[in-house]
């Protein structure tokens, strides 16, 4: 069940990571080693076992839709290093 260099490149692309050749060479055997180890779960029969995605048992937690003014808009905008215009952030264009 190990992972090939091709798969490492594919996964990196899915994860929006651009790896250098040096990183690929370093990560591929490390990831293969880890994924081989994780394979031990296959030896367990889990046919009738339900999945656990969370442990609180809480479902559909809602609260009143009340607008709070903290933090203020200008404070939030100040968190971003991007340029600002008319109380908005300027981001790179999606379509060139």
């Amino acid at each position: 069940m190990s992972i090939s260099l091709e798969e490492v490149r594919h996964v990196a692309r899915l994860a929006r990571l651009k790896l250098t050749a040096d990183e690929e060479a370093r990560f591929a055997p490390q990831l293969a080693n880890i994924i081989d180890y994780l394979g031990m779960l296959q030896e367990l029969n889990t046919d009738n076992v339900p999945t656990t995605s969370q442990v609180t048992g809480l479902t559909n937690v809602t609260r009143a839709d009340i607008i709070s003014c903290a933090p203020r808009q200008d404070e939030l905008l100040a968190c971003s290093p991007l340029p600002k215009e008319d109380h908005q952030l300027l981001v790179p264009s999606v379509f060139s």
Binding site: E7, V8, V11, A12, L14, A15, L17, F27, L31, I34
Partner: peptide, 10 residues
């Protein structure tokens, strides 16, 4: 972080 992001994505 890159390793963990890749394991998770995989």
């Amino acid at each position: 972080m890159k390793r963990r992001i890749m394991i998770g994505t995989y």
